[in-house]
């Protein structure tokens, strides 16, 4: 018995090493599973504060540009409001439930971002206190950015679109054919559109937007533009490469969207046994 203990003691550093590796692998797996609870991440209050201070300093240098894009977007929105406003002599029509506001929007600032890894994450400066919930969609004026993963009181961590684990239900705007956009981990400016059948006439230059099927994003938010359509590699599906419209190296201010009817939709899907794969 003493011999065994002595033997184990002589191996103590190796055993400790194996134990720590197993622990680390456990952490990696639990962090990357979509429904797993993340133990520690940058939504922690202390870490969030450090990241926010860093971002406060760095953002100072990009304020001018951020302002300019906001002003341009405001102008666009003002134009749309004008088109929607009722003229005094028009007949007011009461809206029914089909037009009830299904999506609620809010804004946040990105305080930490990465784009060079295969699994990239964002940290936002708003949390459960401001009504942020896991599962909300994130986009900015250029296109979609990601999806909220976990939330603490003051901060939220989101999966970036530049994360090989995120699939976004999308469609080709001109032909209405749908598929999923997924990043392949190679270039931060390009992604792949999957599951588009071969008979679809997709061509370079077509715009890709969100389809609205997965109830995270409303329909019609830009994702990117098709750059190459390659029919060769798969017998069933087209190989579509898209140029992302969002510049992920310059994501400062983002909008978050919440589907207020997602609970109802989910329970309906469950009742009718529909598995929504997107």
């Amino acid at each position: 018995m003493l011999r065994i203990l002595q033997f184990l003691y002589s191996l103590r550093s190796f055993l400790l090493f194996v134990l720590l590796e197993v622990l680390a692998i456990g952490l990696i797996v639990s962090n990357n599973s979509p429904q797993g609870a993340a133990f520690f991440n940058s939504s922690n209050a202390v870490i969030g504060t450090v990241l926010k201070t860093r971002s406060d300093i760095l953002d100072f240098f990009s304020f001018a540009q951020a302002n300019e894009t906001l002003i341009l977007e405001n102008a666009l929105l003002l134009e749309q409001i004008k088109a929607l406003k009722q003229e005094p002599d028009s007949l007011p029509i009461p809206l029914d439930s089909a037009f009830e506001a299904q999506f609620q929007f809010t804004g946040a600032r990105v305080i930490s971002n990465s784009l060079r890894f295969a699994q990239n994450h964002l940290t936002l400066n708003k949390g459960s206190k401001d009504g942020i919930k896991p599962g909300m969609g994130i986009f900015n004026q250029d296109g979609i950015v990601g999806r909220v993963k976990s939330v603490s009181e003051n901060y939220a961590v989101a999966i970036s679109l530049l994360n090989t684990g995120l699939l976004v239900s999308s469609k080709i705007k001109s032909t209405e054919n749908f598929g999923s956009v997924n990043w392949d981990g190679i270039n931060s400016k390009q992604a792949k559109m999957l599951y588009v059948p071969r008979h679809v006439k997709a061509q370079a230059g077509d715009t890709i937007v969100t389809s609205g099927y997965n109830a995270v994003f409303p329909e019609g938010i830009r994702i990117g533009v098709i750059s190459v359509v390659n029919p060769a590699s798969d017998p069933n599906y087209l190989d579509i490469l898209i140029d992302l419209s969002t510049d992920f190296s310059r994501v400062n201010y983002v909008y978050l969207v919440e589907n207020t009817q997602i609970v109802e939709l989910d329970s309906l899907h469950k009742k009718s046994e529909v598995v929504n794969e997107f």
Binding site: S13, F14, F17, L20, E21, L23, A24, I25, G26, L27, I28, N31, A38, F39, F40, N41, S42, N44, I47, V50, L51, S112, S114, F117, Q119, H121, T123, V157
Partner: peptide
Amino acid sequence: DVFYDTIGIHAASASLMGF
């Protein structure tokens, strides 16, 4: 790791290096 949001990856590689 905590700041990188890559929990476990730096820890696994750094402990290999220490070993």
